[in-house]
Design a protein around this nucleic acid. Structure first.
Length: 839
RNA sequence: GCGAAUGUGGCGGAACUGGUAGACGCGCUGGAUUUAGGUUCCAGUGGGGUAACCCGUGGGAGUUCGACUCUCCCCAUUCGCACCA
């Protein structure tokens, strides 16, 4: 064994061992409890970044821990290989997206292997391969038959100069990121999936996920946004104008109606109003993202139309407004400025009337001159509903509107259907053929997959397959006439919505999924960035239910436990190329090795919190590994190599603790209490404190001084006895330490386990159990407080009676000082912890 | 704008169900080893005070014998907002 820790050598050897012995290749084994641990697969952007290293280190520590608990652990890895960056790189470097992607995958795979992650590489998949996406196309055609997909027009960001559709991230301050031209909103036909059909179930089943972070559940609930309200029909020139509100109790306070600029009423009115026409035109020049719409200045123009209030018969002005979008809801809202802050600000700006119809139930003062009163309360100036509570009025007004036929109670969701069409090249072709006579016809199963041509040139002027007759010219599967393929591709969220299931049966070329998924699913532990809290996780849950209803899987939810890891920061902000504050993990691995990288990243912060990068802390992690290695060298010298001609001095198990002295006993107790703490911390994925416990165990082992004195005093049996116990504590402690840390730093522990002759393969070792007998203490230390302030500490027998403890506490000199001349009013005794004397 | 979270020494963080604030590590200071630098080892390290003690978990109020932990308000930072993945 080398005297110095040489990570490169240690790590290469361990990785070779794992590969040769196929340690992480698994198959279904009904006799064993399964554990499916999945880290979110990466987009192959070029090389691993720190966020990947963090994500995968957490997943690997968890997987290895579960494996040592005796479970059949599946930990796969793959590539989320379709996406925009490949097209951007293609434009920049004149390299086809496919080649760029495959090169990146090769490089990043090598990096993952160098980090020693316990993946079953036999199951590797890349979503850009036809053998993967063909099943996505297949499922899409099934959903088409079921009526779960449909086509409608929807807005996209359009750059009028580059003549291309822009992603939201390609719109910077309302302008194109390449040419700075103001972006327009363009309505084009696109495919949608009816996720709203599953809104109720997606909401309700969140209750089946108690082991998801509460904040993710809350964000998903808010995103789905179920509300109970009333659809109210106003009339404009005897034509119905529908609006939805969750506050029908404020109906008498409505003073105008706001409609989208694209609303048919506004478009018609614009024909006779130049001001309105130019406003409608202006509204086209705007990005489509919700944050862009909500943060833009609220603008409007009076259409001149009047809407008749269904209850009062009043005629309210109808305004076209830029914050109302045609594609969401009815494209119209009733405005109650007195009781909605946004309506209030708009009314103030355009001098529209503000009519208060709700007052606080407790008659507290409100200043309607300053801001809207948005809470519930008691109605006023509301006809027959005056003096009712908001809740009573909600029911009363809804009933009345329903009786009159100008309203309907409705459950509404904020969630919108999922637009899955992208006007891009590097994605899964949408398996639809457009026929002049038959309309949209799904590609028959026998013709799947629709393969994306990979040998193309991307020049930035739109998707190359839109210019390839060889791709899009075909015949209609129904009537045989000449027809054209759909040239849009799927949203890449489609691929990442079902990969977790495909890992169970990657080799199946006959079906999307097979029986094996029901052995492995659901995923027991899913790990990924908090930035995926809503979209990816909601789409994957939705897809899972689609697959369940297609008979492909038999559980309701895909991910039982979810861990959302925090971000990696440097100097307080997210590492990013644009900020220029990235740290390349490869440099870290090259300098210190995989174990140091893993140790640092797990020690620096608990997984859910953001992690601040620190070069010094990395050096500290490396130092700790060197200390462990140093311990190994010392122990090996003492036990294995022999000393002064005495060979094979490895302490015998089971250990003989008879004659153990108090100091040794307390050292053993310390090691076991640290193990207990570490086991608890492993169970809650708090690896930083597991490592802290490991550091303390190492320190404690070092206190059991290794001794050449055994051999210098061979004839002195008394010293020998003490010495043997010291050695046994070291032997026991080191075996605990190595196993405890092996999920975190697998290479160095693999090597030392073998070198110190504990066994052949630490992966197959039993997880260390707490020896309760080592923990028994006969005295405990209690803290003594006076009025809740710490004043002293006392040692009492573990089984001391409450009276005894109180007497001892009061007798303490420091305590007596603070209690003197005062009456003891109360004594609070928390067993095993504290005494609080209240004076 | 809307939704969600976070805030503890010089730094990363610890504190289990309301019960010793600052574990563990980094950094720093002093010492030992070393020709020197580095490495390694030992000791110290929240602020104030000679001390007894006092102050201290973003700010302000509150509940409690006792609050980093619970409640309310405020401030700052971060994430998401449907075409980045």
């Amino acid at each position: 064994m080398d005297e110095h820790y040489l990570p490169e050598n240690v790590e290469e050897e361990a990785q070779k061992y794992w590969q040769e012995n196929q340690c992480f290749e698994v198959s279904e084994d009904p006799k064993k409890e399964k554990f499916y641990c999945l880290s979110m697969f990466p987009y192959p952007s070029g090389k691993l970044h720190m966020g990947h290293v963090r994500n995968y280190t957490i997943g690997d520590a968890l997987s290895r821990f579960q494996r040592m608990q005796g479970k059949n652990v599946l930990q796969p890895m793959g590539w989320d290989a379709f996406g925009m960056p490949a097209e951007n790189a293609a434009i920049a470097n004149q390299v086809p997206p496919a080649q760029w992607t495959y090169d990146n995958i090769d490089y990043m795979r090598a990096q993952l292997k160098r980090l020693g992650f316990a993946y079953d590489w036999q199951r590797e998949l890349a979503t850009c391969k036809p053998e993967y996406y063909r099943w996505e196309q297949w499922l899409f055609t099934r959903l088409y038959e079921k009526g779960l997909v449909y086509k409608k027009t929807a807005p996209v960001n359009w750059c009028p100069k580059d003549l291309t559709v822009l992603a939201n991230e390609q719109v910077v301050d309302g302008c194109c990121w390449r040419c700075d031209t103001p972006v327009e909103r363009k309505e084009i036909p696109q495919w949608f999936m009816k996720i709203t059909d599953y809104a109720e179930e997606l909401l309700a089943d969140l209750d089946q996920l108690p082991n998801w972070p509460e904040r993710v559940l809350t964000m998903q609930r808010n995103w789905i946004g179920r509300s109970e309200g009333v659809e109210i029909v106003f009339t404009v020139n005897d034509e119905p104008l529908r609006v939805y509100t969750t506050r029908p109790d404020t109906l008498y306070g409505a003073t105008y109606v706001a409609i989208a600029a694209q609303h048919p009423l506004a478009m018609r009115a614009a024909e006779s109003s130049t001001e309105l026409a130019s406003f409608v035109a202006d509204c086209k020049v705007a990005a489509v993202s919700e944050s862009a719409i909500e943060t833009a200045e609220k603008l409007g123009v009076d259409t001149g139309l009047k809407a008749r209030h269904p209850l009062t018969g009043e005629l309210l002005p109808v305004w076209a407004a830029n914050f109302v979008l045609m594609s969401y809801g009815e494209g119209a809202v009733m405005s109650v400025p007195a009781h909605d802050q946004r309506d209030y600000e708009f009314a103030r700006k355009y001098s529209l009337p503000i009519k208060q119809v709700i007052r606080p139930a407790d008659d507290s003062d409100i200043a309607i001159d300053e801001c809207a009163y948005v809470d519930q309360g008691i109605l006023q100036d509301s006809g027959e509903f005056t003096d009712r509570t908001s809740a009573e009025a909600f029911a009363g007004i809804a009933d009345k509107l329903e009786q009159m036929g100008c309203g309907q109670r409705r459950t509404n969701y904020r969630l919108r259907d999922w637009g899955i069409s992208r006007q891009r090249y590097w994605g899964t072709p949408i398996p639809i053929i457009n026929c002049r006579d038959c309309g949209a016809v799904p590609v028959p199963d026998a013709d799947l997959p629709v393969v994306l041509p990979e040998d193309v040139l991307v020049d930035g002027s739109g998707s190359p397959i839109k210019k390839m007759p060889g791709f899009y010219e075909t015949t209609c599967p129904k009537c045989g006439a000449a027809a054209e393929r759909e040239t849009d591709t799927f949203d890449t969220f489609m691929e990442s919505s079902w990969y977790y299931a495909r890992f169970a049966c990657v080799d199946n070329n006959e079906a999307m999924l097979d029986e094996r998924v029901n052995y492995w699913l659901p995923v027991d532990q899913y790990i990924g960035g908090i930035e995926h809290a809503i979209l990816h996780l909601l789409y994957a849950r939705f897809y899972h239910k689609l697959m369940r209803d297609a008979g492909l899987v038999n559980c309701d939810e895909p991910f039982t436990n979810l861990l959302t890891q925090g971000m990696v920061l440097k100097d307080g902000s997210k590492m990013s190329k644009s900020r220029g504050n990235t740290v390349d993990p490869q440099a870290l691995i090259d300098k210190y090795g995989a174990d140091t990288a893993r140790l640092f990243i797990l020690f620096a912060a608990p997984p859910e919190q953001s992690l601040e990068w620190s070069d010094d802390a990395v050096a500290g992690a490396y130092r700790f590994l060197k200390r462990i290695w140093g311990l190994g060298v010392i122990l090996e010298n003492n036990w294995c190599i022999g000393h002064k001609g005495v060979k094979d001095q490895i302490p015998k198990t089971p250990y003989d603790w008879s004659g153990i002295n108090a100091e040794q006993q307390s050292r053993r107790a310390k090691i076991y209490s640290l193990l207990q703490k570490a086991n608890y911390d492993f169970s809650r994925n708090q690896f930083n404190t597991v490592i802290s416990a490991g550091m303390q165990i190492l320190n404690t082992i070092h206190q059991s001084a290794p001794g050449p004195k055994l051999f210098d005093n061979v004839s002195n049996t008394k010293i020998v006895k003490e010495e043997i116990i010291d050695r046994s504590i070291q032997h026991e402690g080191a075996s605990i330490l190595l196993r405890l840390l092996s999920p975190i730093v697998p290479h160095i522990t693999h090597r030392l386990w073998k070198e110190l002759k504990y066994g052949e393969n630490i992966l197959d070792a039993d997880w260390p159990e707490v020896d309760e007998s080592a923990l028994v203490q006969d005295t405990v230390e209690l803290i003594v407080q006076v009025n809740g302030k710490l004043r002293s500490k006392i040692k009492v027998a573990a089984d001391a009676a409450p009276d005894e403890i109180e007497q001892q506490a009061l007798a303490d000199a420091k305590v007596a000082n603070h209690v003197a001349n005062k009456t003891v009013r109360k004594i609070i005794l928390v067993p095993g912890r504290l005494v609080n004397i209240v004076v």
